[in-house]
Write a protein that binds this DNA or RNA. Structure first.
Length: 429
DNA sequence: GCCGTTTTCGGCCCGACTGTTTTCAGTCG
């Protein structure tokens, strides 16, 4: 079976998990995690790089040791170091790390003190009350563990950007009505416009955090409050979407917006640059010693570390920092740059609007042309167009264009491919 | 384990919240 970047990244993550449970050197653990992240964010298949004869130790976070392990996994499908670790610790132990509230230290204690290494054993121990007597544990932690197991706590669910937006917009509007709130902005992967988002990170500026937090957790859609302090809170909405809220003073808006927009990987890379310049970056600003030298806007955050402004959509640590330094950042396509849409369905098949209504909507979006591309006849579930209906639609489009509707409609069709590989074209075309 | 415009040793991103403590460790993002 071919081995890809993700497979090797998983090997490195599992090594890191096991080393962490055993209390190994934290920097060694981080090195494995960095290696895993580099592989995941590489953007190209590691096999291809190696076939091209490239030196993979030039990748950030990949040194001689990890490079050797990458070659080993690619060639043998195994990693001896991991196999060895798996012999000293039960294979299912790392599953416990996925439960909220359980990290390496607690998993270590559960395993070494109570011989617990899977969900069933954990649930039994939580029920009979033996966990709360372990040092560092207590009744609340035990209850939380039990709840997490029973809820099959799964934090991996992601929402499509547009769906997340439906939850974000009313919540933002709600927060704007909180007393003392100045700015409200969704940050995180939502602001970076990723296709899917795991949670919403909302940033608010206000002098006093506590009342804003109280107002936030009182929102109608809030199902569970995970945590709440004076500057941040985390909740789960009834929809299952997690929302993290942070409140910062106005003068830290840029720093906080930058910090919570991420990505994590991009932030770490930029903080490293700052560190080399003797600066420290956190969500309150850029600091030289105790002196704050930037933080009001994202622009001055970038300026303080010698970088031009990098738009959120590019902040993934996939070469944008190097490109920014070299003055080679791409110009992003803006909504206003779009001149036309080459794929649209009408109610003739599975769309919801008439040709005229579609044309109006496209015009309202500033488009110059719109292609009408309803389904071909084979797609009966979508009421696909047969020859007669295609011809009739063509006539309608030509009539619309002749009427000068302020937008040009193009005649098209979405053609199905038949079993024999031929196209489901109408006979007349 | 990785890395270097303070290079081959001595660092390594940073802060908030919770629960268990009695000043802080563990977890999380």
């Amino acid at each position: 079976m071919p081995v890809h970047n993700e497979d090797i990244a998983s090997v490195f993550d599992e090594i890191a998990d096991l080393l962490e449970i055993e209390g190994d050197n934290p920097f060694r653990i981080r090195a494995y995690r960095n290696g895993a992240r580099t592989l995941r964010e590489l953007g190209s298949d590691i096999n291809v790089l190696i076939e091209r004869g490239e030196d993979i130790t030039r990748l950030s976070g990949i040194g001689k040791n990890l490079a050797g392990k990458i070659h080993e996994v690619l060639e043998t499908g195994h990693c001896q170091a991991l196999d060895k670790l798996r012999k000293t610790l039960p294979a299912d132990l790392t599953e416990l790390l996925k439960l909220p509230g359980l990290g390496p230290k607690r998993v270590h204690a559960l395993y070494h003190e109570l011989d617990i290494h899977n969900h069933e054993q954990l649930e039994r121990a939580a029920r009979d009350g033996s966990i709360q007597h372990l040092p560092g544990f207590g009744a609340k932690t035990e209850a939380r563990i039990l709840q997490a197991i029973q809820a099959h706590a799964d934090t991996s669910q992601r929402f499509k950007l547009v769906v997340a937006g439906r939850y974000a917009e009313p919540l933002v509007a709600y927060l704007r009505t909180a007393k003392g709130v100045k700015e409200v902005q969704v940050a995180g992967s939502y602001r970076r416009a990723r296709e899917t988002v795991g949670d919403l990170d909302i940033l608010v500026t206000a002098r006093n955090g506590r009342p804003v937090i109280e107002y936030f957790v009182a929102y109608d859609e809030v199902g569970t409050v995970l945590s709440r302090g004076t500057t941040r809170a985390a909740v789960i909405l009834h929809s299952g979407l997690q929302v993290d809220l942070r409140v910062v003073p106005e003068e830290s808006y840029g720093a906080a917006l930058y910090y919570f927009t991420g990505s994590r990987s991009h932030n770490i890379a930029v903080r490293r640059i700052a560190r080399k310049r003797g600066l420290k970056i956190n969500e309150y600003g850029v600091f030289r010693g105790n002196k704050r030298i930037a933080g009001k806007s994202e622009e001055d955050m970038f300026r303080s570390v010698g970088l031009p402004y990098i738009p959120p959509e590019l902040r993934e640590n996939r070469g944008e920092i190097e490109a920014a330094r070299a003055g080679l950042l791409p110009e992003l396509v803006q909504p206003g740059d779009l001149r036309g849409d080459l794929h649209a369905h009408t109610r003739a098949t599975d769309g919801h609007e008439s040709i005229a209504a579609m044309a109006e909507a496209a015009k309202a979006h500033g488009l110059e042309y719109l292609a009408i591309t309803d389904h071909s006849k084979r797609l009966t579930v979508a009421h696909g167009l047969d020859s007669k209906r295609v011809l009739s639609q063509i006539e309608s489009i030509e009539a619309f264009n002749a009427g000068g509707g302020g937008i040009t409609l193009l005649k098209g069709i979405e053609v199905d491919i038949l079993e024999d590989g031929s196209l489901d074209l109408p006979d007349e075309i």
